[in-house]
Structures are given as C-alpha cells and as structure tokens.
Amino acid sequence: MITRRDFLKIAAFSSLLGLGGAFTINALEKEPGQKVLKDINALKGKRWAMVIDTRKFKTELDFEKVIKACHKAHNVPEIANPLHEVKWIWTDDYKHSFTHTAEEYISDEIKHRKFLLLCNHCENPPCVRVCPVKATFKRPDGITMQDMHRCIGCKFCMAGCPYGARSYNFLPPRDYIKEFNPEYPTRTLGVVEKCTFCNQRIDKGQLPYCVEASEGKIIFGDLYDPNSEIRKVLSENIVIRRKVELGTQPMVFYII
C-alpha cells in the first residue's frame, strides 16, 4: 500500500520530472480503494454512500460524539464566527437542511429534529466540474476528494456546491486547532477543505469516524452492491436527500 509519505515522495519526485499532473491524478483518482490498496483489508466499494437514521439521534451528545470524532481526527479548526468557520460535519434543523422540500405541516418533532449535514459525495458533483486544477476530483469509488496541497483557493467550488459543504480557510487554521492529531495533516490559510468520507480509513479497511462514533445510527456501504447492508436499509425505509432536483445525485440519505 502507498502511505501518504511515500505518495508525497513520489509526487515530489515526479513533479521534478515534470510528471506531476499525470502521477497525482493516476495515483489518487484511479488507484486508492481499487488497485494499489486492494491487497490489505481495504474496503472495496464501487459507490460509497451513507444513510443517516435521524430517528436514532436523540440527545445533543449523540451528535456531539459524531462531530467531535470527525473534527478532532481531521484537525478541523474550531472557529466560533459562523461567517468564517470550518466544518466537515455539522447539524441544522429540518427546514434549513431540506430547503425546497421541507413540509410545512410535518410533525413538530421532525420540525425540531436536528440533521447531520456533510458533503454528499454527489455522483455528479458540480464542485469537481468547476475546479480549475482538479484539486477536487472524483475517485472511482465515488468519493469526492479534496487535495488541499493543490487547491489554489479560487473558491469556485464553494459557489458550485449547492449544499454549503465546503469551507475556505479564512483564518490561519493551525491557530484554532484545540487538540492536534499528528496522524492527519493540517491545512494552510487560503485553501478549501471538506469531508472526504475518511478516505484514509476506507483505504485501510475501516469505517469513517462518524459512522463508527454513531454506534449504528449511520450506515455506510456500497450502493452498487445489491446485497449490501445499505441497500437493505434503503429498500426498507423511506429516505430523503437534499436538493435532488439539481441532478447532483447526493450519496447521503436521511431516514426521517
């Protein structure tokens, strides 16, 4: 398996030879989760997707555990000002999560329920379409990846994403990390970041942090595998997605 360090080494070397573009794209776009990482117990999937069972999230703590697990592991800076905050996974209420489709006369309980929001890893992502440097790109397993080392910070993807899933580093992020995790890279000023479906964990055969921390409230799996658990859950429950009318095909489903 290619570790991150090896990867950076090869990338640096190949870019010296002027092969930067070709290498990075091949290695990241085609290989992980597919060829290179197939040996060990990497999770294999053709289209990663997530179902959030919103009925099971009852207390503040349920959400906090999930969000903390992600943000801590990924060195997400804690910025209080909502204008400039960085967030990979967060919550909002029914009406603002499901704009356009929110039902006015739905039960009060649902109206006041909170919903976990994150990048939808859209099957047809506008963010990828608009990025001028392929800093955000699709892996064949469906993950919309973000290469913070290539991003030029043009913010086009933020205008392109209809889900507000992307955060720009308006402030030096390292100054706002409370507990630093040396296992995961930190970011710099002026780049865009977002949830990556924990690609680093998937490639090692582990589930994303949020899924793990949710203790069964979030189901993760391969949408293209008809025998997967996620397909079973989807066939047995009524689910909704955010802004399906835009044709982006979000891969995050919500059981109401």
Partner: peptide
C-alpha cells in the same frame, strides 16, 4: 486566490471542464 503561489497549477493541470 488563497494560494497565489500555486497559480501555475492552472497550466500544469489543465482542466477543460472548468
């Protein structure tokens, strides 16, 4: 651009769909 020193990426990684 938040990372102006990387502006060459636009030429190094030409992306016609952008």
């Amino acid at each position: 651009m938040g990372q102006p020193s990387r502006v060459w990426n636009v030429i190094l990684h030409p992306t016609p769909h952008s």
